[in-house]
Amino acid sequence: MLIRVSYGTAIAMGLIKAKMLARPTTAYLMTHYDGRCRNNCAFCPQARGSRADLSRLSRVTWPAFEVERVVQKLPDGNFARICLQTVDYPGLVDDVLELLELLRPLGLPVSVSITPVNRETLEEFKALGVDYIGVGLDVASERLYPEIKDSLYSWDDMWRFTGDVIDVFGDGRALVHIIIGLGETDREVLETIERAYSMGAEVSLFAFTPIKGTRLENARPPSLKRYRRIQVAHYLIKEGVAKTEDFEFDENDFLAGFGLSKEELVNIIPSEVFTTHGCPGCNRPYYNERPKKEPYNFPVRPEKEYVKRVLDSIL
């Protein structure tokens, strides 16, 4: 049985010899399938209509290894948890259950990002050491979802699944993934973020990354300034400081203000707002950007002074 391992994880485990600029604190693994995903997400290299390299997910390369070797080498990476990404294909659930059985003796908590499954399957995952589920909503706009996702699972299906995950695993254990830069407005993003938190889910933000061979290969990623604005607004919603209706928007429904002064925000916003947000132990280094660029999500917390610099640039 083969399993894909993210390039940085493979280096940390000693499966590949290369340099790392930031060490992953989570082991990122992905199911292996000789074919494309059943879904056709416009941004994804794994999509059924994509011409992209199947060894990629976002901008990361995921080489394949024998699962027994990966299990043997995982302790060498000193990881805090395992994150298992999945591609949707016939037999996926059986493969995930087999992988969880093989990974269980390592004693590490496991997160699984997967398309909707039934509650019985979620209970099986939980019994095998899974404590968080990633929900790939991805598109923050109900208006754009059918076009961009072109999925077997509707917008409503994804929210129902989110509710099932919360029922089985508890509040805060469903991580709703949202990709910024797919054509959505800021108002749509914040309304979706607010919906997730109102039902007991968490939100993990990603920046759209154009990949050659995908339907959106020629689209542009979001500006860092826009992404920073959304990160600040996300934090204010998450902490209950503000709701979408409290923010200021321009005529195109993009953020124009936070309803608070710069001085108030400096005292409220911690620097970890600009780091990766995911399951405990997740830092996901350079998932959306090249190492020479300022990351959308820092793998480690920047200094406190960075908050003021960001606010100076976005207000």
Score class of each variant (00 low, 15 high):
L137W: 12
I148P: 01
L137F: 13
Y132M: 05
D138G: 04
L137S: 09
V139C: 12
R160H: 06
W159I: 01
P146V: 03
I133H: 07
S151H: 13
R143L: 00
A140K: 05
W159N: 04
E142I: 02
P146F: 07
S151L: 12
V139P: 03
G134F: 14
G136A: 15
P146N: 06
D164H: 09
A140E: 02
V135Y: 10
Y145P: 00
S141N: 04
F161C: 02
D138Y: 08
E147Q: 12
L152V: 07
D150A: 14
D138R: 11
S154V: 00
I133W: 10
W155Q: 06
I148M: 07
P146R: 07
M158A: 10
D138M: 07
G163W: 01
V139D: 06
D150H: 11
Y145M: 03
D156M: 11
P146E: 07
M158F: 09
D164G: 07
Y145F: 13
M158T: 01
F161N: 04
S154I: 01
T162C: 13
V135N: 08
T162V: 05
D157P: 12
R143N: 02
D156S: 15
G134Y: 15
V139T: 11
W159G: 01
K149Q: 15
I133V: 15
I148C: 04
W159L: 07
I148F: 05
E142S: 08
I148T: 11
S141R: 07
E142K: 14
W159E: 03
S154Q: 14
E142F: 03
D150Q: 14
D157F: 14
I148G: 01
L137H: 10
T162P: 05
Y132C: 03
R143D: 00
S151C: 12
W159M: 08
Y153T: 02
S154C: 11
I148Y: 00
D138A: 09
S151A: 14
P146L: 06
